[in-house]
Amino acid sequence: MEKWFNVGKIVNTHGIRGEVRVISRTDFPEERYKVGNVLNLFLPKSNTPIELTIKNHRSHKNFELLTFEGLENINDVEKFRDGILKVPESQLGDLEEDEFYFHEIIGCHVVTVNGEEIGKITEILTPGANDVWVVKGKGGKELLIPYIHDVVKKVDVKEKVIVIDPMEGLF
């Protein structure tokens, strides 16, 4: 069975010419929303995807605005509100060395170079210069780990283990 990955949610229409507002959930909006790309729309209460080909893409405020081929006015796209845009695993692109998809990192166990168990990654924040991994530690305490080479020493997504060397004051 094909595994699907969420790349955005249609939250509203925009104007009367078939444009939709999307809250993006992808690290690569320029690539993912490129004209001609195909996205699959999953509507609430339906497990059958609707295949949509991107006709136009632009960014506006905190949204991605998309139009799809063959859907030229607001009446065509109003029913898409609250739909989730997804791509199959086969459409995930190859990444550079030391780059990972969020789904590969979330759920990984974090240990120190000394073998001390820290916790499990539950979320990834993207505040700016580098990502920050949220780790649920012992007793439910959340720890923030910056994804920088000084701290993260090894990432093994197959074994779901990340080795860190915590700098002074990190915990």
Rank of each mutant, 00 (worst) to 15 (best):
residue 1 M to H: 13
residue 1 M to F: 11
residue 2 E to Y: 05
residue 5 F to S: 02
residue 7 V to S: 02
residue 7 V to R: 01
residue 9 K to H: 05
residue 9 K to V: 09
residue 10 I to D: 00
residue 11 V to E: 00
residue 11 V to G: 06
residue 14 H to Q: 10
residue 16 I to D: 11
residue 20 V to H: 00
residue 21 R to P: 04
residue 21 R to I: 06
residue 23 I to Y: 01
residue 24 S to W: 13
residue 25 R to I: 12
residue 26 T to D: 01
residue 28 F to Q: 12
residue 30 E to V: 10
residue 34 K to D: 12
residue 36 G to T: 05
residue 36 G to V: 12
residue 39 L to P: 03
residue 39 L to C: 05
residue 39 L to Y: 00
residue 40 N to P: 08
residue 44 P to E: 02
residue 44 P to I: 05
residue 44 P to A: 05
residue 45 K to T: 10
residue 45 K to N: 11
residue 46 S to Q: 01
residue 51 E to C: 09
residue 55 K to I: 12
residue 56 N to L: 14
residue 56 N to S: 13
residue 57 H to F: 15
residue 59 S to Q: 12
residue 61 K to E: 14
residue 63 F to R: 02
residue 65 L to Y: 04
residue 66 L to V: 10
residue 75 N to G: 14
residue 76 D to A: 11
residue 76 D to W: 00
residue 77 V to F: 01
residue 90 S to F: 08
residue 90 S to Q: 13
residue 93 G to Y: 14
residue 94 D to E: 15
residue 95 L to W: 10
residue 95 L to D: 07
residue 96 E to F: 11
residue 98 D to S: 13
residue 98 D to V: 12
residue 99 E to T: 09
residue 100 F to E: 04
residue 100 F to D: 05
residue 102 F to R: 14
residue 103 H to D: 13
residue 103 H to L: 08
residue 103 H to F: 14
residue 104 E to G: 07
residue 105 I to R: 07
residue 106 I to K: 11
residue 106 I to P: 12
residue 106 I to W: 06
residue 108 C to M: 06
residue 110 V to L: 08
residue 115 G to Y: 07
residue 116 E to Q: 13
residue 117 E to M: 08
residue 118 I to H: 09
residue 118 I to W: 09
residue 119 G to K: 05
residue 120 K to P: 08
residue 122 T to M: 03
residue 127 P to F: 03
residue 128 G to P: 06
residue 129 A to P: 06
residue 133 W to F: 10
residue 133 W to K: 02
residue 133 W to N: 06
residue 134 V to M: 03
residue 134 V to G: 01
residue 135 V to H: 05
residue 139 G to H: 08
residue 141 K to I: 15
residue 141 K to V: 15
residue 142 E to R: 15
residue 142 E to P: 14
residue 143 L to Y: 14
residue 143 L to M: 13
residue 144 L to H: 14
residue 145 I to N: 03
residue 150 D to Y: 14
residue 150 D to P: 11
residue 151 V to N: 02
residue 157 V to I: 15
residue 157 V to F: 11
residue 157 V to N: 12
residue 161 V to Q: 12
residue 164 I to E: 02
residue 164 I to N: 02
residue 166 P to M: 02
residue 166 P to L: 01
residue 166 P to S: 01
residue 169 G to Q: 06
residue 170 L to N: 03
